[in-house]
């Protein structure tokens, strides 16, 4: 368990450090600080079979899902305000969930929906009707009534509490992998009011699971990773053509 807790803290600290780095250089229009526990609590249940799609704040979700920090930093450097793909996100995830179901991979699709854009209700309806391994995560409350009407169970958790998110997401992912169908996770957010990293630190040190020194060492390690990643060369003009054309 302590390995898992160290991993969770490393992910949350990396998201925070990347964002601080980008903000210091004038980028990162859509902030994710305060929501690290949400990305980490959910994505730590996922593996290579699974797909996530997110709205504008997706750099946090990408890091939590295991994306290369160099790529995330380069992406934010070139697009300080991440392009919005709001409306389509929930249906994209239905597509990923259909693929996982048809190919019987045991994979799940997770849509991070912000305040629930575009085709959210249509996607909930589709996921319910086809019993898809899909999880819809909103950063606002108000969808549970509609989701219940469509046959999708919903749960509200404090999105800044890693342990609350992690437990609810574990149940949702388990349900999806086991053929139990879609789930809605609504996260309430006392955002900017509660530092979810500090809250995590206090709780794991109080419980005796991790020591302060271990957490401080992770802070140092992450700071070095972000420095090295930020110094990595950016994409070259030829890179956009990489992996685009196929020679027969």
């Amino acid at each position: 368990m302590t390995d898992a807790l160290r991993g969770a803290y490393r992910v949350m600290r990396t998201i925070r450090a990347v964002e601080e780095r980008v903000r210091a250089t004038g980028g990162c229009g859509h902030r994710y600080d305060g929501e690290e526990a949400l990305a980490a609590g959910i994505c730590l249940h996922l593996d290579s079979r699974d797909a996530v799609a997110g709205t504008r704040r997706r750099h946090g979700q990408r890091i939590a899902k295991g994306a290369d920090v160099k790529a995330v930093l380069a992406g934010l450097r070139d697009h300080p305000v991440e392009p919005a793909t709001l409306g389509g996100v929930p249906l994209l995830i239905c597509g990923a969930a259909i693929a996982a179901k048809q190919q019987d991979t045991g994979g799940v699709g997770v849509a991070f929906l912000g305040d629930g854009p575009g085709a959210t209700l249509e996607a909930l309806n589709l996921a319910s009707a086809w019993h898809l391994p899909a999880i819809f995560v909103t950063e606002t409350t108000g969808y549970t009534d509609q989701a219940a009407g469509l046959g999708v169970p919903g749960v509200i958790v404090d999105g800044s509490d890693f342990f609350a998110v992690h437990e609810a997401a574990g149940e949702a992912v388990g349900r999806a992998r086991g053929g139990g169908g879609p789930t809605l996770i609504e996260t309430g957010f006392p955002r900017y009011a509660v530092d979810c990293l500090q809250r995590f630190r206090t709780r794991v040190t109080n419980s005796g699971e991790l020591r302060e020194q271990v957490l401080d060492a992770i802070d140092t390690e992450v700071a070095q990773l972000v420095e090295v990643s930020a110094a990595a060369p950016g994409p070259t003009p030829g890179d956009p053509e990489t992996d685009v054309y196929v020679s027969y």
Partner: peptide
């Protein structure tokens, strides 16, 4: 309470959702 009837027991059991309306 707007949050009552909305916890994880909707996932781990068959607890009902008490609608806001």
């Amino acid at each position: 309470n707007p949050a009552s009837g909305r916890d994880i027991r909707r996932l781990v059991a068959q607890a009902s959702v008490f609608p806001t309306a």
